[in-house]
Write a protein that binds this DNA or RNA. Structure first.
Lengths: 415, 415
DNA sequence: TTGAAAGCGCTAACAA
DNA sequence: TTGTTAGCGCTTTCAA
């Protein structure tokens, strides 16, 4: 038995795990001999390193460069640059640059020569340097919370639309709160990103417009609109209506809603949570259930769902169905309901929003609303590319319709 | 009702959402008047824009610049540069640079002056340009799958360790497969990132060493070791032993394991899945259960767990406990077990690995192994900073011990 | 169609 | 301690 102690090994090879096997496959870390590699001068005789994109820089005598110990790691090889390519192809750097950007003014023969040189040297343009004059071919995506299983869908949509282009996506790490968002957007701007996608940001409209005035921007999930950035949203009002009419169709009347509490007046109407709550109220009214409207304000977290459900279950006349504003909220509701010893959907129906993997998971099987995250992401990427191509084009708002995904947490109302 | 056009709606539902409210809060996109803003020349009279980090560039007559229509959006303002700061503070750009980097050779008075100028102009250094000579202050983190709820823990650990430094983290988007990994690592290198963290990469050791030879690198979750990169791993063998002895302690003897099938011989010993399977076998043997060893090879996915469980449940003498190599695999197992009409843990116990949010979720309550993701990430960040500071330092392997988290999916063996 | 030359914003070697 | 100057790798005028 291995002692499971909090156990940190700064080992050159202390552990007892599969070591013999590892040793068969790899040379142990410490026994590596660097004597055949060299050295640390910045410019010396450059030896093209056959298609690896790097060039070994040799300096004087190799054994001398090894420094006597024979165990020194090699200096990082110098990168192949546009100059190397130009020299190799016997053309100017301008020509290479034109080929790289598919720009006008290079004969087919020249293009072919340059491309051959690029392949032979394994050249890749240095994006950081390109950015100084032109583009970095980098797109930043800011997700509010990497843990929310809905966001990967959006991300997939974005990357799939960017497939085949020269653009590369990088994610800002999960950030909650305006300060964090500002930090991340600034970091993206400072790194010369060509465009950014903000997913469900919480920052003020003013701040969003500032960002968009500096770099092409698409905002996902906010219902406000601006002339300087494009938006892609889910029709949250319609989504809420889908759930409510689904439940009403099953005979439910006491349908409660748990929403995310929003205080900031400049944001209140723009955020999806407000739209969902609004959609819930409208749908209840149009179904003649205005008197049954029952909204609990907590937050879009599991905790929030738990607290909200506790409150609803404590009502003298408890609801027969709960529409949670997000799947994660529904998780908390299910937990509270289970604790109260009630059966789902027999005694109480529960529905969420977002159709996350949680909801789809068999043993849970939560009724939810699918936002078509892939579509949302793909549209955002498309709009961003269009705006990068023409910063002055009029702004566009895309709104996509959600669909209902009925599962096993909703059924006919009791009695 | 103002139709907010240009306006693209792909909606069937055509919901009229809170529009009146939105109108109260924001000016509609199309009605914005840009007449007070100008223009598009590259360099003109520069007007410092009071702490915003940008300078408005005016060109000739403002009304003329507005182009007659009076509705043209302003050109993106020119960035404040180190030259602006130097001029404002009446010092050289070198001085500013020194202050920025806390470098040697600037008097306290000069530092103060420069800092004041920086604040007054709202200057932020342009990381892309810095990268051309020095560092970009950017660290890339590659996650194999953003959907796996274990990875955010690692990410938190990394960012928390980087808090307070000038480094900013960006994530490569989820990539599976060697080709994708190569694309992402190349993209990071091409963007001049100062260091990169590879989480559970699948690339060959050779490829990892190549990356590490170009840029400081820390590898998380691979058990191999190399002189050019540091590693941080969970002791998967110990983790597997925790589960097995927990189950054996509950009286189980027929304990089966579902592993991820690995074929590549250069990787087989390095990957966590192989280590876990190995740990399972060793623990079984040391507990005198060598005859009961029963391993099904599928994959670390929910599907894989489902298929593996199907096979195990079809055995003439089915196991009383299943140790799934990952929580996500255990999800599939639970699904198959539920389908077979067996009760958990009454008739069969199930355990996972990773202690994801799934496992922690009340109604599921899966027994699992906690990897201390936060610690893993924090150690990786620390090692990376050390390696950035000294690229030639000897490589370090950190191994952290996991802990058992017993929950409600495991209990005493039946009979 | 081609290439020479001037930067982009910053850092680093070197002089004063 | 300070400032001058020469690039980093690329794009972009602008002349040839």
């Amino acid at each position: 038995m291995i002692p499971p102690r909090p156990w940190v090994t700064f080992s050159k090879a202390g552990g007892q795990t599969l070591e013999s096997l590892l040793r068969d496959v790899k040379v142990p870390c410490s026994a590596r001999d660097w004597a055949d590699a060299a050295s640390s001068g910045r410019r010396g005789a450059d030896v093209p390193d056959g298609g690896t994109g790097f060039v070994r820089t040799l300096r004087g005598n190799v054994s001398h460069a090894a420094g006597g110990s024979g165990m020194e790691p090699p200096a990082p090889p110098r990168r192949v640059t546009i100059v190397d390519v130009a020299r190799h192809a016997q053309v100017s750097t301008t020509a290479v640059s034109k080929v790289l950007r598919n720009a006008y003014g290079a004969s087919p023969e020249m293009r072919a020569r340059v491309r051959r040189a690029i392949d032979e040297l394994g050249y890749r343009p240095y994006a950081a340097a390109r950015g100084l004059r032109g583009q970095t071919y980098t797109i930043g995506v800011m997700l509010p919370d990497i843990r929310n299983p809905f966001f990967p869908e959006i991300l997939d949509g974005i990357t799939s639309r960017l497939q085949g282009t020269d653009y590369q996506v990088f994610l800002g790490p999960g950030c909650n709160g305006e300060k964090e968002e500002a930090r991340v957007t600034e970091a993206m701007i400072d790194r010369g990103m060509d465009g950014i996608v903000l997913v469900a940001p919480v920052s003020s409209p003013t701040r969003l417009e500032h960002v968009a005035s500096v770099v092409p921007t698409v905002v996902i999930g906010r219902h406000g609109c601006s002339p300087v950035y494009d938006t892609v949203t889910d029709d949250d009002v319609a989504g809420a209506a889908l759930i409510v009419s689904h439940l009403a169709g099953l005979g439910h009347r006491r349908i409660a809603h748990i929403e995310h509490h929003e205080t900031d007046p400049t944001r209140i109407a723009e955020m999806p949570n407000a739209q969902r709550a609004d959609g819930y109220r409208r749908a209840m009214r149009s179904l003649g259930l205005a008197d049954e409207i029952d909204v609990v304000s907590t937050s879009y977290t599991q905790q929030g769902g738990y607290r909200g459900a506790k409150e609803l279950l404590g009502r003298p006349h408890r609801p027969t169905a709960v529409f949670a504003g997000a799947d994660i909220v529904a998780m908390g509701v299910l937990e509270a309901v289970a604790e109260a010893g009630l059966s789902v959907p027999g005694e109480i129906s529960v529905a969420g929003y977002d159709n996350t993997t949680f909801a789809a998971f068999g043993p849970i099987s939560l009724t939810s609303v699918d936002q078509a995250g892939h579509e949302i992401g793909a549209n955002a990427a498309r709009l961003l590319l269009e705006r990068i191509a023409d910063r002055h084009k009029p702004s566009v708002q895309v709104r996509l319709s959600p669909t209902l995904v009925p599962r096993r947490t909703t059924s006919a109302a009791p009695e």
